[in-house]
């Protein structure tokens, strides 16, 4: 099948790219941003999108940087999954994001696909998003009027829906350095071991105080199970201040399952996902505690 015709432009600077987006918006042209292309090319081939112009930002060098700035790491949106999986800075300070990136697709997809693309495409099954949520990531968006920064959970409106404006570009992902005592786990459940879309994925970070025998703090996010990514606050509440016991874990699992159903309603997949999400939360918490 042939892909639809469009104009292709490859700006070399951020300003140029945003200028092009603005021009497209003002003239009523449909523009699409191309980064790694692992989602865009599929949509083009299926004629799901028929843009007038494709703006290839892959040549804008400053968007592929990773920097530590004080108490934060800033990750450029063009950083690939392969880089996230291997860069020392990410592995040290955002290990759970590395783990999540390592489960994306295949080596070929990880070499092309970018963090920014994974976020902006806004698939409910995106693997990096639950990790970014529990890392309290913020997103920097740049438009003609300047930059705005918002928490990642405010970015999504629903499946494949975000608050990004037509003339805005995601320019950075900001992750505060996590407290050193936290232990994180990423679990991905898919139908096969590679090139697989998550049936469910889960990121969990917590600190269990072994002296006091209580969960000091817990952050949980389950992907592919709610319309937009959220923290599993009810399960977190069950755990915090309590001891690591079977009963507490079971209760946390139930709370997560209930929150998922409350947010997504009862769907055909719920019969499977409801019990599994609870059990996966238990497994993740257990694995995080085992890490020390």
């Amino acid at each position: 099948m042939s892909i639809p015709h469009f104009r292709y432009i490859a700006p070399q600077t951020l300003e140029e790219a945003i200028g092009l987006l603005r021009m497209a918006k003002e003239s009523g042209k449909r523009a699409r941003v191309l980064a790694g292309g692992t989602d865009l090319m599929v949509q083009l081939r299926a004629h799901e999108i028929t843009p007038d112009v494709v703006i290839d930002i892959s040549g804008i060098k400053r968007l592929s940087r990773v920097d530590r700035m004080g108490n934060e790491i800033q990750i450029g949106p063009l950083v690939t999954h392969a880089s996230l999986a291997t860069l020392d800075l990410i592995r040290e300070y955002a290990g759970v994001l590395s783990e999540a990136a390592r489960t994306v697709g295949s080596p070929q997809i990880r070499n092309l696909g970018t963090l920014g693309g994974n976020i902006v495409n806004a698939s409910p099954a995106a693997d990096t998003i639950p990790a970014l949520v529990i890392l309290d990531a913020r997103l920097a968006l740049r438009g003609p009027e300047g930059e705005r920064i918002l928490p990642i959970t405010d970015f999504f409106k629903g499946p494949y829906q975000t608050v990004i404006e037509k003339d805005e570009l995601l320019t950075g992902v900001i992750i505060p350095l996590p407290s050193l005592n936290g232990r994180a786990v990423f679990l991905k459940l898919a139908r096969r071991k590679a090139v697989a879309i998550a049936r469910m994925n889960l990121a969990c970070m917590l600190y269990y105080d072994r002296q006091k025998e209580i969960f000091e703090w817990v952050r949980l996010c389950v992907g592919s199970s709610t319309p937009k990514p959220v923290r599993m606050t009810q399960a977190e509440k069950v755990l915090v201040g309590n001891a690591y016991t079977d009963d507490v874990l079971q209760e946390a699992g139930r709370a997560a399952a209930e929150q998922m159903v409350a947010l997504s309603g009862f769907r055909s997949s719920t019969a499977y996902k409801k019990p599994v999400v609870g059990d996966l939360v238990i497994r993740a918490v257990h694995l995080a505690v085992e890490k020390g």
Binding site: R191, R192, K193, A194, A196
Partner: peptide, 11 residues
């Protein structure tokens, strides 16, 4: 192959 899944080397 989007929805018809065959095993990969990892499987």
């Amino acid at each position: 192959f989007d929805t018809y899944l065959i095993p990969t080397a990892m499987d």
